[in-house]
């Protein structure tokens, strides 16, 4: 009996998929829904563009903090580091785009669980690392691609870039990359045990606006109440925006920290978040 058993084992060569291929296939499965349906692509761009137009152009929030007198431009320059609030806000909206895309991408694992799709892939000989990294990859790729489109639209709408070189644009996108990497890990983690869309929506509502408003997306930290300043100075979103502004807007913008320190902080956030999610997924991602 035992002899026969070992015979079957030998006869059949166990075959495992390559990690990169499995991970990419999973990411690509999510990406297909996006690049194969242009409607989703367009809809996901709408909100930041509306906000950009509304807050940046129509209301011109920036003017609210400066008097409309002759000294307005000087005051704007002092507070925002640019005379164009629209340009200032555009970088905030790029970050907003990155986190909302990461959030939706990360949270989509809730639906995958409900539809039994997670069960299906958990019986395949792949690692949980593939599943997590596939989800993150999907979010990051979407976020960056949409950020490119948003940046172009902002420029068309009148955004002025003092520095507009390949290096400065790449610097800004490197920051967005790290931000969306960390954020999608965070949201995959939050979604790992969530079973229904109600709790998912709750998490989104609870986190989305605070992440944005407790950051320098709309105003600099200097004009915030001190408690908000403290939160905003821990918020990784602030650092991604700070890097983007100092790379693209010019020398009159005062960054939150040196770009090196900001990158370091974002890097730690991204790697740390991913590590935590991957480790916890071993226990939390189950059938």
């Amino acid at each position: 009996m035992d002899k026969q058993e070992s015979k079957i084992r030998v006869e059949r060569k166990i075959h495992y998929p390559n990690f990169f291929r499995a991970t990419w296939s999973l990411a690509n499965r999510d990406l297909k829904k996006w690049y194969l349906s242009p409607a989703i692509l367009i809809i996901s761009m709408v909100q930041p563009i509306i906000w950009l137009a509304l807050f940046g152009k129509a209301f011109n929030l920036g003017a609210l903090f400066t008097s409309v007198s002759s000294g307005a431009t000087a005051a704007e320059l002092a507070i925002f580091g640019t005379t164009s609030y629209f340009s200032y806000l555009a970088l905030g909206m790029l970050a907003f785009m990155a986190i909302s895309t990461s959030m939706m991408g990360g949270m989509s694992i809730v639906w995958d669980r409900r539809f039994g799709f997670v069960d299906k892939i958990l019986t395949a000989p792949i690692t949980k690392l593939s599943i997590i990294v596939g989800k993150i990859l999907n979010s990051v790729i979407r976020a960056l691609a949409q950020a490119v489109v948003l940046l172009i639209i902002a420029i068309v709408l009148g955004m002025t870039l003092t520095y507009f070189t390949i290096t400065s644009v790449l610097t800004a996108f490197a920051a967005l990359f790290l931000l969306s990497f960390g954020m999608s890990s965070l949201f995959v983690l939050l979604a790992l045990r969530a079973r229904d869309w109600q709790s998912q929506m709750m998490i989104i509502n609870l986190l989305m606006l605070p992440l944005l408003f407790a950051s320098n997306a709309f105003f600099p930290l200097s004009i915030m109440p001190s408690w908000l300043q403290t939160i905003a100075s821990w918020n990784p979103v602030s650092y991604a925006i700070s890097i983007g502004r100092s790379a693209l807007l010019g020398p009159s913008y005062t960054p939150l920290a040196s770009n090196l320190m900001s990158f370091l902080y974002l890097g730690i956030f991204a790697v740390g978040m991913t590590a935590i999610t991957v480790i916890l997924s071993r226990r939390l991602l189950k059938g």
């Binding site: 075959h15 495992y16 998929p17 390559n18 291929r21 499995a22 296939s25 999973l26 499965r29 297909k32 829904k33 299906k120 892939i121 395949a124 000989p125 792949i126």
Partner: peptide, 15 residues
């Protein structure tokens, strides 16, 4: 996804 893409995905996951 299409039926084809669904099978293809699993084929990838089985290497």
């Amino acid at each position: 996804l299409t039926g084809y893409d669904n099978i293809l995905l699993l084929a990838d996951l089985y290497g």
